[in-house]
């Protein structure tokens, strides 16, 4: 069973995503801020990371940096509330994320993208 780490400060969003992904048979780990995110990357050894960009304590960009350093092969999907601020999108892609989903988003669509990435 593949393990997915979800880093997102809005609990409702993250549980929605978690609910949807569980339905597809993934194991999920939920954390609610940047610091916990960094710890979870080190501890959980996930197969995929879904992260927000703007969060308390650490930005998503920092998390991507860290993840790429510790787990260079694990794909990352960015879930952003920034709208289409192109600088952030560019920076994220530069750092090697596989997908960038701007909010508002559809959890079903997210699930499809997750499936494609993990196949």
């Amino acid at each position: 069973m593949k393990k997915i780490l979800i880093i997102e400060d809005d609990l409702l969003i993250s549980s929605l995503v978690q609910f949807r992904l569980k339905k597809d048979g993934y194991e999920t780990v939920l954390v609610k801020d940047g610091n916990e995110g960094i710890e979870a990357i080190d501890a959980e050894n996930p197969d995929l990371i879904i992260t927000d960009v703007m969060m308390p304590f650490r930005s998503g960009i920092e998390i991507i940096h860290h993840a790429k350093k510790v787990l260079p092969d694990v794909p990352i999907i960015v879930l952003s509330s920034l709208g289409e601020e192109e600088e952030v999108v560019l920076e994220a892609f530069n750092l090697g994320v596989v997908d960038f989903i701007p909010k508002p988003f559809n959890p079903n669509e997210l699930a499809i993208r997750v499936k494609r990435v993990l196949r």
């Binding site: 940047g34 610091n35 308390p56 304590f57 650490r58 920092e62």
Partner: peptide, 8 residues
């Protein structure tokens, strides 16, 4: 407590 530029 200050972490990464914010008072936590």
């Amino acid at each position: 407590d200050v972490k990464d530029g914010t008072v936590t």
